[in-house]
Nucleic acid binder design. Structure first.
Lengths: 153, 153
DNA sequence: GGAATATAGTTTCCTAGTCAACAAAGGGAG
DNA sequence: CTCCCTTTGTTGACTAGGAAACTATATTCC
Protein backbone atom coordinates (compact mmCIF):
# COMPACT_ATOMS: atom_id res chain seq x y z
CA UNK A 1 0.00 0.00 0.00
CA UNK A 2 1.12 3.57 -0.49
CA UNK A 3 0.29 6.63 1.54
CA UNK A 4 -3.19 6.87 0.03
CA UNK A 5 -4.14 3.44 1.27
CA UNK A 6 -4.34 2.23 -2.32
CA UNK A 7 -2.18 -0.52 -3.75
CA UNK A 8 0.84 1.00 -5.47
CA UNK A 9 0.88 0.59 -9.21
CA UNK A 10 3.19 -1.91 -10.79
CA UNK A 11 4.65 0.87 -12.91
CA UNK A 12 5.45 2.95 -9.83
CA UNK A 13 8.44 0.74 -9.22
CA UNK A 14 11.82 1.42 -10.73
CA UNK A 15 12.32 -2.34 -10.61
CA UNK A 16 9.49 -2.75 -13.05
CA UNK A 17 11.09 -0.51 -15.64
CA UNK A 18 14.52 -2.00 -15.04
CA UNK A 19 13.20 -5.46 -15.73
CA UNK A 20 11.32 -4.35 -18.79
CA UNK A 21 14.26 -2.55 -20.36
CA UNK A 22 16.82 -5.16 -19.32
CA UNK A 23 14.68 -7.94 -20.77
CA UNK A 24 14.29 -6.07 -23.99
CA UNK A 25 18.03 -5.52 -24.33
CA UNK A 26 18.87 -9.14 -23.54
CA UNK A 27 16.22 -10.47 -25.86
CA UNK A 28 17.35 -8.24 -28.70
CA UNK A 29 20.91 -9.41 -28.16
CA UNK A 30 19.82 -13.04 -28.15
CA UNK A 31 18.17 -12.47 -31.52
CA UNK A 32 21.37 -11.00 -32.91
CA UNK A 33 23.39 -13.93 -31.63
CA UNK A 34 21.00 -16.44 -33.16
CA UNK A 35 22.62 -16.01 -36.54
CA UNK A 36 25.94 -17.05 -35.04
CA UNK A 37 24.39 -20.04 -33.29
CA UNK A 38 25.49 -18.76 -29.88
CA UNK A 39 23.38 -18.00 -26.80
CA UNK A 40 23.87 -15.04 -24.47
CA UNK A 41 25.25 -17.29 -21.73
CA UNK A 42 27.65 -18.88 -24.21
CA UNK A 43 28.83 -15.43 -25.29
CA UNK A 44 29.44 -14.36 -21.71
CA UNK A 45 31.51 -17.46 -21.03
CA UNK A 46 33.53 -16.95 -24.19
CA UNK A 47 34.03 -13.29 -23.30
CA UNK A 48 35.26 -14.23 -19.83
CA UNK A 49 37.65 -16.77 -21.27
CA UNK A 50 38.87 -14.19 -23.74
CA UNK A 51 40.05 -11.95 -20.89
CA UNK A 52 41.44 -14.67 -18.63
CA UNK A 53 42.40 -17.95 -20.16
CA UNK A 54 42.57 -20.72 -19.12
CA UNK A 55 40.00 -20.58 -16.34
CA UNK A 56 38.62 -23.23 -13.98
CA UNK A 57 34.86 -23.89 -14.12
CA UNK A 58 34.31 -22.88 -10.51
CA UNK A 59 35.92 -19.51 -11.18
CA UNK A 60 33.61 -19.00 -14.13
CA UNK A 61 30.69 -19.89 -11.89
CA UNK A 62 31.71 -17.09 -9.54
CA UNK A 63 32.23 -14.56 -12.31
CA UNK A 64 29.09 -15.42 -14.21
CA UNK A 65 26.80 -15.77 -11.22
CA UNK A 66 25.84 -19.32 -12.12
CA UNK A 67 26.14 -22.61 -10.27
CA UNK A 68 28.92 -25.07 -11.01
CA UNK A 69 26.30 -27.43 -12.39
CA UNK A 70 25.14 -24.88 -14.93
CA UNK A 71 28.73 -24.09 -15.92
CA UNK A 72 29.38 -27.78 -16.42
CA UNK A 73 26.52 -28.07 -18.89
CA UNK A 74 27.27 -24.75 -20.55
CA UNK A 75 30.87 -25.85 -21.09
CA UNK A 76 29.57 -29.14 -22.51
CA UNK A 77 27.63 -27.24 -25.14
CA UNK A 78 30.55 -25.00 -26.06
CA UNK A 79 32.91 -27.97 -26.27
CA UNK A 80 30.38 -29.73 -28.51
CA UNK A 81 30.42 -26.66 -30.75
CA UNK A 82 34.24 -26.78 -30.73
CA UNK A 83 34.44 -23.19 -29.47
CA UNK A 84 35.99 -24.13 -26.13
CA UNK A 85 38.44 -26.78 -24.99
CA UNK A 86 38.41 -28.60 -21.67
CA UNK A 87 41.57 -30.11 -20.28
CA UNK A 88 42.79 -31.47 -16.96
CA UNK A 89 44.66 -29.17 -14.66
CA UNK A 90 48.10 -30.77 -14.23
CA UNK A 91 48.46 -29.08 -10.84
CA UNK A 92 45.16 -30.31 -9.34
CA UNK A 93 43.62 -33.67 -10.10
CA UNK A 94 40.12 -32.38 -9.43
CA UNK A 95 40.26 -29.26 -11.51
CA UNK A 96 39.78 -28.63 -15.19
CA UNK A 97 40.90 -25.79 -17.39
CA UNK A 98 38.62 -24.18 -19.90
CA UNK A 99 40.03 -22.21 -22.79
CA UNK A 100 38.89 -20.87 -26.13
CA UNK A 101 39.61 -23.01 -29.14
CA UNK A 102 41.11 -21.34 -32.19
CA UNK A 103 37.66 -21.16 -33.72
CA UNK A 104 36.31 -19.68 -30.50
CA UNK A 105 39.02 -17.07 -30.27
CA UNK A 106 38.38 -16.14 -33.85
CA UNK A 107 34.68 -15.68 -33.18
CA UNK A 108 34.98 -13.36 -30.17
CA UNK A 109 35.61 -10.08 -32.04
CA UNK A 110 32.66 -10.91 -34.26
CA UNK A 111 30.38 -11.37 -31.28
CA UNK A 112 31.84 -8.31 -29.54
CA UNK A 113 30.81 -6.26 -32.53
CA UNK A 114 27.27 -7.59 -32.21
CA UNK A 115 27.32 -6.62 -28.53
CA UNK A 116 28.46 -3.11 -29.44
CA UNK A 117 25.74 -2.80 -32.06
CA UNK A 118 23.14 -4.06 -29.64
CA UNK A 119 24.13 -1.54 -27.01
CA UNK A 120 24.14 1.27 -29.54
CA UNK A 121 20.73 0.25 -30.77
CA UNK A 122 19.24 -0.16 -27.31
CA UNK A 123 20.56 3.07 -25.83
CA UNK A 124 20.92 5.12 -28.98
CA UNK A 125 17.71 6.95 -28.12
CA UNK A 126 19.50 8.62 -25.19
CA UNK A 127 21.66 11.71 -25.32
CA UNK A 128 25.36 11.27 -24.55
CA UNK A 129 24.72 12.93 -21.22
CA UNK A 130 21.88 10.58 -20.38
CA UNK A 131 24.03 7.57 -21.21
CA UNK A 132 26.71 8.88 -18.88
CA UNK A 133 24.15 9.41 -16.13
CA UNK A 134 22.68 5.94 -16.60
CA UNK A 135 26.10 4.35 -16.54
CA UNK A 136 27.04 6.20 -13.37
CA UNK A 137 23.78 5.36 -11.61
CA UNK A 138 23.87 1.68 -12.54
CA UNK A 139 27.45 1.34 -11.35
CA UNK A 140 26.52 3.10 -8.13
CA UNK A 141 23.71 0.64 -7.47
CA UNK A 142 25.94 -2.30 -8.32
CA UNK A 143 28.61 -1.00 -5.98
CA UNK A 144 26.14 -0.36 -3.16
CA UNK A 145 24.99 -3.97 -3.32
CA UNK A 146 28.40 -5.47 -3.85
CA UNK A 147 27.54 -6.93 -7.24
CA UNK A 148 30.48 -8.21 -9.19
CA UNK A 149 29.43 -11.18 -11.29
CA UNK A 150 28.25 -10.94 -14.83
CA UNK A 151 24.74 -12.34 -14.83
CA UNK A 152 23.50 -14.04 -17.97
CA UNK A 153 19.74 -14.07 -17.89
CA UNK B 1 35.98 -4.43 -31.81
CA UNK B 2 36.28 -0.83 -30.72
CA UNK B 3 38.26 1.97 -32.25
CA UNK B 4 41.53 0.61 -30.86
CA UNK B 5 41.13 -2.64 -32.69
CA UNK B 6 40.74 -4.41 -29.35
CA UNK B 7 37.68 -6.32 -28.28
CA UNK B 8 35.44 -4.07 -26.19
CA UNK B 9 35.14 -5.06 -22.57
CA UNK B 10 31.99 -6.72 -21.32
CA UNK B 11 31.67 -3.98 -18.71
CA UNK B 12 31.77 -1.27 -21.37
CA UNK B 13 28.20 -2.09 -22.23
CA UNK B 14 25.29 -0.44 -20.49
CA UNK B 15 23.41 -3.65 -21.21
CA UNK B 16 25.81 -5.49 -18.96
CA UNK B 17 25.09 -3.24 -15.97
CA UNK B 18 21.39 -3.19 -16.71
CA UNK B 19 21.29 -6.97 -16.61
CA UNK B 20 23.34 -7.16 -13.46
CA UNK B 21 21.24 -4.66 -11.53
CA UNK B 22 17.91 -5.90 -12.89
CA UNK B 23 18.80 -9.48 -11.99
CA UNK B 24 19.76 -8.44 -8.51
CA UNK B 25 16.50 -6.59 -7.96
CA UNK B 26 14.38 -9.43 -9.31
CA UNK B 27 16.25 -12.02 -7.30
CA UNK B 28 15.93 -9.99 -4.11
CA UNK B 29 12.21 -9.63 -4.74
CA UNK B 30 11.86 -13.36 -5.36
CA UNK B 31 13.47 -13.98 -1.99
CA UNK B 32 11.02 -11.65 -0.29
CA UNK B 33 8.08 -13.37 -1.97
CA UNK B 34 9.29 -16.80 -0.88
CA UNK B 35 7.82 -16.30 2.55
CA UNK B 36 4.40 -15.76 0.96
CA UNK B 37 4.77 -18.83 -1.25
CA UNK B 38 4.38 -16.73 -4.39
CA UNK B 39 6.74 -16.37 -7.35
CA UNK B 40 7.50 -13.14 -9.20
CA UNK B 41 5.48 -14.26 -12.22
CA UNK B 42 2.57 -15.17 -9.97
CA UNK B 43 2.73 -11.74 -8.35
CA UNK B 44 2.71 -9.98 -11.70
CA UNK B 45 -0.34 -11.94 -12.82
CA UNK B 46 -2.15 -11.17 -9.59
CA UNK B 47 -1.21 -7.51 -9.89
CA UNK B 48 -2.56 -7.38 -13.44
CA UNK B 49 -5.78 -9.01 -12.37
CA UNK B 50 -6.05 -6.55 -9.51
CA UNK B 51 -6.20 -3.64 -11.95
CA UNK B 52 -8.36 -5.26 -14.62
CA UNK B 53 -10.51 -8.13 -13.59
CA UNK B 54 -11.70 -10.42 -15.10
CA UNK B 55 -9.14 -10.85 -17.83
CA UNK B 56 -8.77 -13.43 -20.60
CA UNK B 57 -5.55 -15.49 -20.61
CA UNK B 58 -4.51 -14.26 -24.03
CA UNK B 59 -4.73 -10.66 -22.81
CA UNK B 60 -2.54 -11.52 -19.86
CA UNK B 61 -0.09 -13.10 -22.26
CA UNK B 62 0.13 -9.81 -24.11
CA UNK B 63 0.50 -7.71 -20.99
CA UNK B 64 2.99 -9.99 -19.31
CA UNK B 65 5.10 -10.74 -22.36
CA UNK B 66 4.63 -14.48 -22.03
CA UNK B 67 3.18 -17.10 -24.35
CA UNK B 68 -0.35 -18.41 -23.94
CA UNK B 69 1.11 -21.75 -22.97
CA UNK B 70 3.01 -20.21 -20.09
CA UNK B 71 -0.05 -18.27 -18.94
CA UNK B 72 -2.07 -21.47 -19.01
CA UNK B 73 0.36 -23.21 -16.68
CA UNK B 74 0.86 -20.15 -14.49
CA UNK B 75 -2.91 -19.85 -14.07
CA UNK B 76 -3.02 -23.56 -13.20
CA UNK B 77 -0.63 -22.95 -10.34
CA UNK B 78 -2.53 -19.93 -9.03
CA UNK B 79 -5.84 -21.76 -9.27
CA UNK B 80 -4.27 -24.67 -7.38
CA UNK B 81 -3.23 -22.19 -4.68
CA UNK B 82 -6.80 -20.85 -4.65
CA UNK B 83 -5.59 -17.33 -5.34
CA UNK B 84 -7.22 -17.08 -8.77
CA UNK B 85 -10.44 -18.40 -10.27
CA UNK B 86 -10.95 -19.58 -13.83
CA UNK B 87 -14.41 -19.51 -15.42
CA UNK B 88 -15.88 -19.81 -18.90
CA UNK B 89 -16.62 -16.66 -20.80
CA UNK B 90 -20.38 -16.73 -21.46
CA UNK B 91 -19.91 -14.53 -24.52
CA UNK B 92 -17.26 -16.69 -26.23
CA UNK B 93 -17.17 -20.44 -26.01
CA UNK B 94 -13.40 -20.54 -26.51
CA UNK B 95 -12.42 -17.94 -23.95
CA UNK B 96 -11.92 -18.10 -20.23
CA UNK B 97 -12.02 -15.41 -17.60
CA UNK B 98 -9.41 -15.20 -14.88
CA UNK B 99 -10.09 -13.27 -11.70
CA UNK B 100 -8.68 -12.99 -8.19
CA UNK B 101 -10.29 -15.13 -5.55
CA UNK B 102 -11.18 -13.49 -2.26
CA UNK B 103 -7.98 -14.86 -0.78
CA UNK B 104 -6.03 -13.54 -3.76
CA UNK B 105 -7.55 -10.08 -3.52
CA UNK B 106 -6.74 -10.01 0.15
CA UNK B 107 -3.13 -10.92 -0.50
CA UNK B 108 -2.39 -8.23 -3.09
CA UNK B 109 -1.83 -5.28 -0.70
CA UNK B 110 0.50 -7.47 1.29
CA UNK B 111 2.57 -8.31 -1.76
CA UNK B 112 2.44 -4.72 -2.96
CA UNK B 113 4.03 -3.68 0.30
CA UNK B 114 6.83 -6.18 -0.31
CA UNK B 115 7.31 -4.71 -3.77
CA UNK B 116 7.55 -1.22 -2.29
CA UNK B 117 10.06 -2.39 0.27
CA UNK B 118 12.10 -4.15 -2.36
CA UNK B 119 12.23 -1.07 -4.53
CA UNK B 120 13.18 1.11 -1.59
CA UNK B 121 15.91 -1.30 -0.62
CA UNK B 122 17.28 -1.71 -4.13
CA UNK B 123 17.34 1.98 -5.05
CA UNK B 124 17.69 3.49 -1.59
CA UNK B 125 21.37 4.05 -2.24
CA UNK B 126 20.46 6.72 -4.81
CA UNK B 127 19.62 10.34 -4.13
CA UNK B 128 16.07 11.45 -4.86
CA UNK B 129 17.39 13.26 -7.90
CA UNK B 130 19.15 10.18 -9.18
CA UNK B 131 15.99 8.12 -8.78
CA UNK B 132 14.09 10.68 -10.79
CA UNK B 133 16.75 10.65 -13.47
CA UNK B 134 16.78 6.86 -13.62
CA UNK B 135 13.02 6.70 -13.84
CA UNK B 136 12.95 9.25 -16.63
CA UNK B 137 15.70 7.52 -18.60
CA UNK B 138 14.20 4.06 -18.28
CA UNK B 139 10.78 5.29 -19.39
CA UNK B 140 12.42 7.07 -22.31
CA UNK B 141 14.10 3.86 -23.44
CA UNK B 142 10.92 1.87 -23.01
CA UNK B 143 8.99 4.45 -25.02
CA UNK B 144 11.60 4.55 -27.77
CA UNK B 145 11.30 0.81 -28.25
CA UNK B 146 7.55 0.65 -27.86
CA UNK B 147 7.70 -1.58 -24.79
CA UNK B 148 4.40 -1.95 -23.01
CA UNK B 149 4.24 -5.41 -21.48
CA UNK B 150 5.29 -6.21 -17.94
CA UNK B 151 8.08 -8.78 -18.28
CA UNK B 152 8.44 -11.29 -15.50
CA UNK B 153 11.95 -12.66 -15.62
C1' DG C 1 50.80 -41.54 7.59
C1' DG C 2 45.88 -41.68 8.17
C1' DA C 3 41.27 -39.83 9.19
C1' DA C 4 38.28 -36.06 8.82
C1' DT C 5 37.06 -32.29 6.19
C1' DA C 6 36.86 -29.25 2.19
C1' DT C 7 36.75 -28.49 -2.71
C1' DA C 8 35.93 -29.49 -8.01
C1' DG C 9 33.18 -31.22 -11.22
C1' DT C 10 29.28 -34.08 -12.71
C1' DT C 11 24.78 -35.86 -12.47
C1' DT C 12 19.92 -36.31 -11.30
C1' DC C 13 15.67 -34.35 -10.38
C1' DC C 14 12.88 -30.35 -10.47
C1' DT C 15 10.97 -25.85 -12.16
C1' DA C 16 9.38 -22.52 -15.38
C1' DG C 17 9.58 -21.08 -19.52
C1' DT C 18 9.26 -21.67 -25.22
C1' DC C 19 7.52 -23.75 -29.41
C1' DA C 20 4.58 -26.38 -32.16
C1' DA C 21 0.66 -29.34 -32.68
C1' DC C 22 -3.85 -29.71 -31.53
C1' DA C 23 -9.19 -29.44 -30.59
C1' DA C 24 -12.96 -26.45 -30.00
C1' DA C 25 -15.30 -22.44 -31.14
C1' DG C 26 -16.04 -18.11 -33.82
C1' DG C 27 -16.66 -15.48 -38.10
C1' DG C 28 -16.81 -14.36 -43.01
C1' DA C 29 -17.56 -15.43 -48.16
C1' DG C 30 -20.02 -17.98 -51.27
C1' DC D 1 -25.98 -23.31 -44.48
C1' DT D 2 -21.24 -24.70 -45.44
C1' DC D 3 -16.50 -24.29 -46.04
C1' DC D 4 -12.44 -22.11 -44.70
C1' DC D 5 -9.59 -19.54 -42.01
C1' DT D 6 -8.71 -17.45 -37.43
C1' DT D 7 -8.53 -17.34 -32.57
C1' DT D 8 -8.40 -19.46 -27.81
C1' DG D 9 -6.65 -22.39 -24.60
C1' DT D 10 -4.25 -26.79 -23.55
C1' DT D 11 -0.84 -30.19 -24.08
C1' DG D 12 3.68 -32.55 -24.95
C1' DA D 13 8.47 -32.30 -26.19
C1' DC D 14 12.26 -29.61 -25.29
C1' DT D 15 15.55 -26.20 -23.03
C1' DA D 16 18.31 -23.72 -19.55
C1' DG D 17 19.16 -23.29 -15.08
C1' DG D 18 19.09 -24.32 -9.66
C1' DA D 19 19.54 -27.58 -5.60
C1' DA D 20 21.42 -31.32 -3.76
C1' DA D 21 23.58 -35.83 -3.88
C1' DC D 22 27.59 -38.05 -5.44
C1' DT D 23 32.62 -39.16 -6.79
C1' DA D 24 37.25 -38.03 -6.82
C1' DT D 25 40.92 -35.44 -5.27
C1' DA D 26 43.29 -32.03 -1.81
C1' DT D 27 44.24 -30.46 2.48
C1' DT D 28 44.49 -30.26 7.38
C1' DC D 29 45.03 -31.98 11.81
C1' DC D 30 46.52 -35.26 14.92
Amino acid sequence: MNANGTVSRLTDHLGYWMRMVSNHVSFAFARRLEGKDVTVAEWVMMRELHSAEPLAPHRLAGRMGMTRGAISKLADRLVAKALVTRSDDPADGRAHMLALSDAGRLLVPDLARLADENDADAFGCLTADERTQLDRILRKIAAAHGLKGSPTS
